[in-house]
């Protein structure tokens, strides 16, 4: 995984709450392999809806945006990692919102995308910030846990473990392999402690 320290790009302001993973990627697009790319399906049906609540994604002002700003409960619902594939393949590397679905946030980190938790007030401030709305650049500073727009800065929260993992670009599986002996020891002891825990049949 590519280490993440800072990035600077326009931020796309999406003033929606409860953007669930079904909206981020509708189920019918999930049959294809990841290698074919998921970016084209990002919020596909929202963008096709009358009144298009996700029109900002197609607004030239936010071309090249790597940061998405949204309201509370972003990425709730289905565990589909394809939602993160769609965001990442579209170009987003940081989502800033007041709260995230737990599974989504975890999936994001596995794919090098930063789930940055900001306060509700800061989310509203960013969503209406003239600099953001004009397509101005925002800086995501992960080590400092700060978003900077013009001369304003907004603190964000992230699980310390995730921060470490993102900053270092660590891969879970490689890390776990160094625990192979501990896993074997646990399994052996556990089969004595809980002999009923394996499937009968």
């Amino acid at each position: 995984m590519t280490p993440f320290t800072t990035l600077e790009s326009p931020a796309c302001p999406l003033p929606l709450a409860n953007v669930d993973t079904d909206q981020i990627i509708p189920a019918r697009f999930m049959k294809r392999p990841r290698s074919e790319g998921y970016g084209a399906f990002l919020m596909h049906d929202l963008r096709g809806e009358p009144g298009n609540a996700a029109a900002v994604l197609d607004d030239a002002a936010f071309e090249g945006a790597q940061v998405l700003i949204a309201r509370r409960n972003f990425g709730s619902g289905s565990s589909r990692e394809a939602a993160v594939y769609a965001l990442a393949d579209y170009g987003f590397r940081c989502i800033a919102a007041p709260s995230f679905g737990d599974i989504f946030a975890s999936n994001a980190v596995k794919n090098g995308v930063v789930p940055a938790r900001i306060s509700e007030a800061d989310a509203e401030a960013l969503l209406s910030d003239p600099g953001v709305l004009a397509g101005g650049r925002i800086v995501v500073d992960l080590p400092a846990q700060l978003l900077r727009v013009g001369n304003k800065q907004f603190a964000f929260e992230i699980e310390p473990v995730w921060k470490t993992q993102l900053v270092n670009g660590w891969d879970d599986i490689d890390m776990t392999r160094s625990y192979a002996a501990a896993i074997d020891d646990f399994a052996a002891a556990d089969s004595k402690r809980r002999p009923w825990a394996v499937p009968a049949a």
């Binding site: 619902g77 990692e81 599974i103 999936n107 596995k110 794919n111 879970d172 599986i173 776990t176 896993i183």
Partner: peptide, 30 residues
């Protein structure tokens, strides 16, 4: 699958995970 929480009905500690975590569990059972 996020509705894995269903199995909690039996007093199981059951939760949904994404594809990368599925791969991790496949390879390590942890």
């Amino acid at each position: 699958d996020s509705h894995t929480s269903t199995h909690g009905a039996f007093g199981a500690y059951a939760f949904g995970i994404g594809a990368s975590e599925v791969a991790h569990v496949m390879m390590t059972q942890t």
